[in-house]
Simulated assay, not measured.
Amino acid sequence: MPAEDDKYPASTGRRRFVKGVVGSATLAGVGTAAAAGIDSATGPTGGGGGIIDFRGVENTKGPAPRGMPQIPLEVDDEGYLKGVWPEPETRVLDNGTEVVEAKMELGGVTYTTEWFQYCGIQTAEGVRPDADQDNYFRYISNSKYDWQNSEVEGDQKVHVDDFADYGSWGNGIGADGLGKPAQAKWRSEDVSSAETLPVQLIRSERIEEMAENNEWIAASTAEGFIANLNKCTHFCCVPTFKALPDSSSAGAEDRIYCQCHQSVYDPFSIVEESFAALPIPEGE
């Protein structure tokens, strides 16, 4: 991609992370300052809600108001990938209402499952803090990636070995060697398709480099893998990384591109932002 199309100079993942966080500081401050007013409209009626700080892949172009939240992940002893889900706990609010929360300190960041309560996901069974799910990423069927459709099956758990060629992989869209992507689902076993939590997964040497110099990236990624909840923050469409030839029209052939309204996200720029998380509906 030409330099003038990039928000930051070509550099290491570390430099991009730092600049991304600094660039979003003002936005995060504005969101927090408005917390009292917004929280009164989004206060919990069932589980969570209100102003939430999160880490996500940066929105660099298009109408999306913010980045998409990152999903911290880990690799188990057999090489299967799973998202990190904090242990749920019950908390009593000032008004006496009991709510179940799932949050933890991870890599110097307060990570909470409320990061994912937007775009209708707040009604999905899998996003409930105490939902009975095993947290493994599983491939979806009919992916936009030819390699995925031919080499693995839908509902199969994602394994490290499936990405052995991540340092050289390419599909004719953008530059080769930036990373190998897959489309997956998370905490979505035995639920309707409408309740699926879509995931964009990428394994990249750039993520490995970023993890060397940043506490959060080191704690939230593993073996070069990074994941985000793949719901565009504009109109909740499902974007993709290096999957659509027409992404070049938006200068997004090496980024996550939403073809619905041309929003673009940079998976190698993780920023801190704030938003008003929607509460889990009471009784759902």
Rank of each mutant, 00 (worst) to 15 (best):
S40T: 12
I38S: 09
K82Y: 12
A222T: 07
C119L: 08
V238C: 03
E151K: 10
A36W: 10
I38M: 08
A124H: 15
P88E: 03
P88I: 05
I140G: 00
N135D: 14
V21W: 04
E114T: 08
A194E: 15
T221I: 03
E114R: 01
A124M: 07
G31Y: 07
I121D: 03
S141R: 11
E223A: 10
A102P: 06
I217G: 01
V127S: 03
F17Q: 05
K231M: 12
D165Q: 06
D94R: 10
Q117Y: 11
E151F: 03
G56Y: 02
E78A: 14
Q122V: 05
C236P: 06
T196L: 13
G120D: 11
A276K: 09
H234M: 12
N59V: 11
L278H: 11
N214E: 14
Y265I: 02
A28V: 02
F241K: 04
M68V: 14
P267G: 06
E282K: 15
E87Y: 09
V127Y: 00
T112F: 02
G79F: 07
F163N: 02
S263G: 09
V271R: 01
A35W: 03
A131D: 05
G50S: 07
G172T: 12
L278M: 14
P88Y: 02
G107L: 05
P9W: 05
D162R: 01
S274A: 13
C237K: 10
F268E: 00
R203E: 04
I256M: 11
E273F: 08
G47A: 06
D176C: 07
Y139S: 02
D254N: 15
E114G: 09
E114H: 06
G107E: 08
P281I: 11
Y80I: 01
P267M: 04
Y111A: 06
G46M: 05
A131V: 07
S263A: 14
V199I: 15
G46R: 04
K157C: 01
D190V: 04
G96V: 09
V92P: 07
V109M: 12
G251W: 02
M68G: 02
S40K: 13
E101R: 13
L244R: 08
G37T: 08
S269T: 15
V92N: 06
C119I: 06
V18F: 11
E58S: 13
W216G: 00
P63L: 04
W169K: 05
D53W: 03
I173R: 01
S249T: 13
G108E: 03
P9F: 07
K231Y: 03
H159M: 11
M1C: 06
I52D: 01
V57S: 00
P2F: 10
